[in-house]
Every structure is written in C-alpha cells, then in structure tokens.
C-alpha cells in the first residue's frame, strides 16, 4: 500500500472551483452551474492532464474500419484515394509474424510521444508537444520541410502536397504543411472524445481515451488490469497510445 499523494494547493483549488460555480444575479436569484455543465466549457491544455489512448486489439474486429472513417469524416481527408501523397491520419495496419504466421490488424495513428522525434527535428518549432501531451503541428509556423515526416518512427506524419478545399472549420489543413492525428483537440478541449473513440464505442469499444494522470480514470483502471505495450518500446519515446494484444 502506498500513501495517497498529497493534493497540491493549485490542483485542489482548481478542482474546488470547477466543481461548482455560482453566479449571483440579484437578491434571491442565483445561477448555479453543476460539474456536468462546467466540463463542457473549453479548458486550456495543462500539465495536470496527460491524454492517452488504449487500444484493446482483442476487441478490435477484423474488417472494421469505423475509426478510419470517423477520422476521415471529422478532418476531411479522403479514404478513397490510392495516391501515396494523400494523408491517412489513422490507418489499419496488417501485421504478420514471420515464424508463426499469425496475422493481426491494428489501427495506427500518431502515438503522441512524450519525447517526440518529429518535434525534435522541427526547425521552426511548428511541431510541438502541448502541455497535456498532445503532439500538434502549428501550421502558422510550418515551412513544409518534411523533416518530421522522415523522423517519425511510425510513419504517421504526412505532407499535404495538394490544395485543400472545403476544410472542416475545426480542422484547418493546407498545401505545403505537415499534418497528423491531433487527438481531436477541438473535441477534447470541450470535454469530448476523439472521433475515432466515439465511433468505436458504438461497435466494439476497443478504444479507451482518458487522462493518464488521473488515477480514477477508466484508462488507468484498464492499464492496471490488462497487459499493454507501446509500439517500438525500445525507442523509449513514452507514447500516449498503448495497445493490448499486439
């Protein structure tokens, strides 16, 4: 048994304030906001949280591509293109073991490393790691050098070489910039789930999204209950994405 961690003054105050907000409009009239509603207000990225994803391959169904379709619909990249240059923020990878012949499939997207090689090599600081662990491309600074595309050990960064039209308002994408899974920060910042996780939850619930720093979160409960692994763990990149049954 380990002693419970002391609650930092700042996080205690934040929790207490987030728990209940009351506004006095006038004598006898008080507007109350309860935690459920407060969670929907956008929250800035904070080191208090570390977003992570657990993909349970024992529940991931062969032939299912709901996560891919959901991501494509959410961010506007095409799945029908055979061109090598078309980004695939998430794709289904088929792997086979040379000795046993066992085959498996798993969804592969940006692994949101704690020490991201893509951010290390970025000459302009466009690729960066947000306080809550999400690795993003700041396209305002991206010069399209593609170093990050080459540096990523997982091949999940892409260069947009074509003019993009009719982008989603929440997901700007443009010619001459790098792009990758952004863990749907536009949803997560408002307390929502990434589109792939939401789509998966309607079928097999193979994806669990949550705060790795929160001992009470479902993802922490799952991580302590089942064995999980990171891709290419020998690189010690501290990815936020973990797999079970790989």
């Amino acid at each position: 048994m380990s002693a419970p961690e002391p609650v930092a003054r700042r996080s205690f105050l934040a929790t207490a304030l987030a728990g209940l907000t009351a506004t006095v409009l006038g004598p006898g009239i008080v507007l109350m906001a309860f935690p459920g509603e407060a969670a929907a207000a956008p929250r800035p990225a904070s080191t208090a949280r570390r977003w992570g994803l657990l993909i349970d391959l024992s529940r991931c169904e062969d032939g299912c591509s709901r996560c891919v379709e959901a991501c494509s619909g959410e961010h506007g990249w095409r799945t029908d293109s055979e061109g090598a240059s078309e980004p695939q923020w998430v794709r289904i990878v088929h792997a086979s073991d040379e000795d046993s012949g066992r085959t498996s499939q798993f969804p592969l997207m940006c692994q949101h490393c704690a020490q991201p090689p893509c951010a290390d090599v970025c000459p302009t600081g466009a690729t960066f790691r947000r306080a809550d662990g999400v690795v993003l491309v700041d396209r305002h600074r991206c010069i399209g050098c593609r170093y990050c595309v080459m540096a990523c050990p997982f091949g999940v960064r892409f260069f947009q070489g074509d003019t993009v039209r009719d982008q989603r308002p929440h997901s700007p994408r443009g010619k001459g910039t790098a792009e990758a899974c952004n863990l749907c920060v536009h949803r997560v910042d408002h307390g929502g789930l990434p589109a792939c996780v939401e789509a998966c939850s309607t079928a097999n619930s193979a994806m669990i999204f949550g705060d790795l720093n929160d001992p009470g979160s479902p993802i922490r409960a799952a991580l302590s209950a089942i064995p999980t692994t990171r891709l290419r763990a020998n690189l010690a990149l501290g990815q936020g994405v973990r797999y079970h049954g790989l």
């Binding site: 956008p42 929250r43 800035p44 990225a45 960066f128 947000r130 306080a131 809550d132 999400v134 993003l136 700041d138 305002h140 920060v185 536009h186 910042d189 408002h190």
Partner: peptide, 9 residues
C-alpha cells in the same frame, strides 16, 4: 497562438 499552442480556446 493561445488556441493552437496552449489549447486556450
């Protein structure tokens, strides 16, 4: 800058 880099939307 606030929205992209700090997630402060």
């Amino acid at each position: 800058t606030k929205a992209v880099r700090q997630g402060d939307r």
